[in-house]
């Protein structure tokens, strides 16, 4: 055909739109979720080794820098949870209740409430176990 079309570069595409920045933030927070899962996995391994190694692991997590890290990670995980449930309605088959399609905001809201309840349950259970 010999037409001279122009294809625009994609460099820095994720900075072009706030929506893409939020998407990249969501993907990045997943990395921290994996890293923290590894920290918890180490805790399980220490627990298997006995009481002293586990208490040593807990003591390490109670130092100043470890607490600062947890505060930072809490913010990261809250964003991860929010963004996860925001995209959830787009990833699932329609839920029909009484002949009506459940709106996206109801699915997102239900997910956030469920994760809040689960977080509180884990927190309470751990406090009872630690006591």
């Amino acid at each position: 055909m010999g037409r001279r079309t122009y294809t625009r570069p994609m460099d820095g595409w994720w900075l072009r739109n706030p929506f893409f920045v939020k998407y990249m933030a969501r993907e990045l927070t997943a990395v921290f979720v994996v890293l923290y899962a590894l920290i918890l996995l180490v805790g399980v391994m220490r627990l298997a080794e006995g009481r002293a190694p586990f208490e040593h692991w807990v003591a390490n997590l109670q130092t100043g820098p470890a607490i600062a890290m947890h505060v930072g990670l809490l913010a990261v995980f809250l964003y991860h949870t929010l963004s996860w449930f925001q995209i959830m309605p787009k990833t699932m088959a329609p839920v029909i209740v009484a002949g009506m399609k459940v709106p996206a905001c109801a699915i997102t809201g239900a997910g956030l409430v469920a994760s809040a309840i689960a977080s509180i349950a884990v927190f309470v259970a751990f406090r009872m176990f630690a006591a």
Partner: peptide
């Protein structure tokens, strides 16, 4: 697809 979701917006 990596579920960016902007298409639907």
């Amino acid at each position: 697809c990596t579920a960016v979701g902007y298409c639907s917006e």
